[in-house]
Design a protein around this nucleic acid. Sequence first.
DNA 1: GTATTTTGTTTGTACATACAAAACAATAAC
DNA 2: GTTATTGTTTTGTATGTACAAACAAAATAC
Lengths: 154, 154
Amino acid sequence: MPNEPNNKTEPSSEQDGTFLHTCMYFTTNRLSRAITRLADEAFAMTGLAPAYGYLVRLVIANPGITQKELSEKLYITPSTLTRFIDKLEGKQLVERQVQGKTVLVYPTVKGTAMKETLHEASKKLKAAYEAKLGKELADALTRMQESASELLEQ
Amino acid sequence: MPNEPNNKTEPSSEQDGTFLHTCMYFTTNRLSRAITRLADEAFAMTGLAPAYGYLVRLVIANPGITQKELSEKLYITPSTLTRFIDKLEGKQLVERQVQGKTVLVYPTVKGTAMKETLHEASKKLKAAYEAKLGKELADALTRMQESASELLEQ
DNA sequence: GTATTTTGTTTGTACATACAAAACAATAAC
DNA sequence: GTTATTGTTTTGTATGTACAAACAAAATAC
């Protein structure tokens, strides 16, 4: 039976955890933790977590955008978005305007004032990971992840 | 000034959120949410979340492994691992044996009995994402994520 | 051989995130 | 016009995850 591991001196895939490294669920989440660390650093100057930063950018560029649209663009659930907007409203960076059954989100003056800073933090983040990965790998990986997300979300 | 967008009819990258799709932080987390959904489904039959399933597999293959080693193999922080082991101990799938300042983790009989089921859930997960992505994309992506993680963790 | 530093684990706290159910508003059916 | 249906948001609850601080044991320095 050639499938049986019979050499006790070399560790099996189970022992050394090799099986983890060929599992996309595992590698994706590992990478997610790593890049989130980097992103948190890059966005520290804004006083916002990266996810909030991108949300504010979307609101600045689309004043009056609905929560539904925001959750679609960000690929997060509506309930998560509600909490995000709650927090940003608390920081007076955006404000809600109820319009029937939908909610329109507008940037405040204070929110709009962050536009440049947010842009810079994003550039800083990109520079940081490109410095470590190289532009080629970073771009290829980003594009592949985009395609894979589309396919998995079906 | 050719950089100024002067055509109001076509939306800018800021408006449509294109800038998100070229940011690795964003695409990684989007993919993470998508594949986590898939993994939760595949592991439903085990009664465990995928992360716990992999942890139990490591413990079964390495009885007496320390928490430190586990957290290194899984790339999660020690504090997170403590909570994971707490929960698995509660379910009587693993048990701790304190050895000085380190903690050795052993599978219980009940834990060992899950070996096959866990293996099958992992295979089911892989089959699920390969069905949607194709084996080529899945493998290429997994390998790239692995390399990128290594580079970012420096 | 005590004092200091290092290492491994746990606890407190906080946050992103999801799902399910509820609340609410608008529209359609009759 | 009331009732049923549909669409959007919010709330309750749960989970994974981290960081910082606390703690305990071991190792090292003197």
